[in-house]
């Protein structure tokens, strides 16, 4: 459905995207995952025909994003990263306006919006600026869907909204799958990978890999330990004296140690026993999550 071949984008001295190639299949939810500044928005804007790639080609269906931008603009729904509706217009007026400029009416594709609209219904007459963050995003999604696009490009739709709204939003996307809409979503939250069929990991404009979330986990060839207890981050300076092939990092309220050699758990235990910090810490072997996979790929790509 969407194919990228050697896409690069250079802004002055900054390389925002560096030789990116991958394919996105029809009807899947595809996640672009990476921290801020990794090039996700630039990639989405190239696909939305808002930016030209400095090198490479991108195609949506049979259309080239540079040459056939007019045709592409008819079949995509784009939701920019920043809230981009008219704050002084009401929910209803925003929807009607976007319906009009896409040459359709709200009623025409209502079946697509029905789920989302149940949330928005009570606020029909309210000005967009007076909506909560989660509602704003739902309204923006409605506006992006209003002309029944075959491809949805969502730039960080869940950034800055509360966890409940995030979950609701991801549920809505899942429901859209039955309408055969291909959804491309970017997010800095690694845990949202589970909502996607496949994901691409990005860092500093480089593609670290494309796979299903499960595929990424299976490809994780190392052993991962989790250290839990009271403020385990205090252990970090000591743990950093481990051999350099051991990766030590804090994640949430635990400290993770990743090693290519499963036997090294003994060194780890020993180190904790000798530690000046006399606390009871539990060490478990755990399954990697996407963040661990991301870190592993990053270390592979960029070295230490």
């Amino acid at each position: 459905m969407i194919s990228l071949q050697g896409i690069s984008k250079i802004f002055g001295a900054i390389t925002a995207l560096d030789n990116i190639s991958f394919e996105i299949n029809k009807g899947e939810i595809f996640g672009l995952i990476g921290p801020d500044g990794s090039g996700k928005s630039t990639l989405l804007r190239i696909l939305a025909t808002l930016l030209r790639p400095s090198a490479g080609h991108a195609k949506i269906g049979k259309y080239d994003v540079e040459v056939d931008y007019k045709a592409i603009r008819k079949i995509i729904g784009y939701m920019p990263g920043q809230f981009s509706l008219y704050p002084d217009l009401s929910v209803e007026e925003n929807l009607n306006f976007f319906a009009h400029i896409f040459g359709t009416r709200l009623e025409e594709n209502y079946f697509l919006l029905r789920d989302i609209f149940t949330y928005l219904e009570p606020f029909r007459k309210r000005r967009a600026s007076h909506l909560s963050g989660g509602m704003k995003q739902k309204l923006a999604l409605s506006c992006a869907l209003i002309h029944r696009p075959t491809i949805l490009l969502l730039d960080e739709p869940t950034t800055g909204i509360d966890p409940v709204s995030r979950a609701e939003f991801l549920m809505l996307l899942k429901n859209l799958k039955k309408h055969e809409i291909t959804i491309l979503i970017s997010t800095p939250y690694m845990d949202e990978a589970s909502a996607c069929d496949r994901i691409a990991l990005f860092k500093n404009g480089k593609l670290l890999g494309v796979d299903t979330p499960g595929g990424f986990r299976e490809a994780y060839k190392r052993t991962l330990y989790s250290i839990r207890g009271i403020r385990p981050a205090r252990l970090l300076p000591e743990l950093r004296t481990l051999p350099s092939h051991c990766w030590v990092y804090a994640s949430g309220n635990e400290v993770k140690v990743s090693t290519p050699n499963p036997n090294e758990i003994y060194i780890l235990r020993e180190m904790l026993d000798r530690s000046t910090i006399k606390q009871n810490y539990q060490i478990h072997v755990i399954e990697p999550d996407i963040e661990d996979c991301f870190i592993a790929r990053m270390k592979d790509t960029y070295g230490e």
Binding site: A48, T49, R73, Y86
Partner: peptide, 13 residues
């Protein structure tokens, strides 16, 4: 500034 121009550009207008 508000980014709505992005949406207008992406539209068939």
């Amino acid at each position: 500034e508000t980014g709505t121009l992005e949406l207008l550009l992406v539209s068939p207008l």
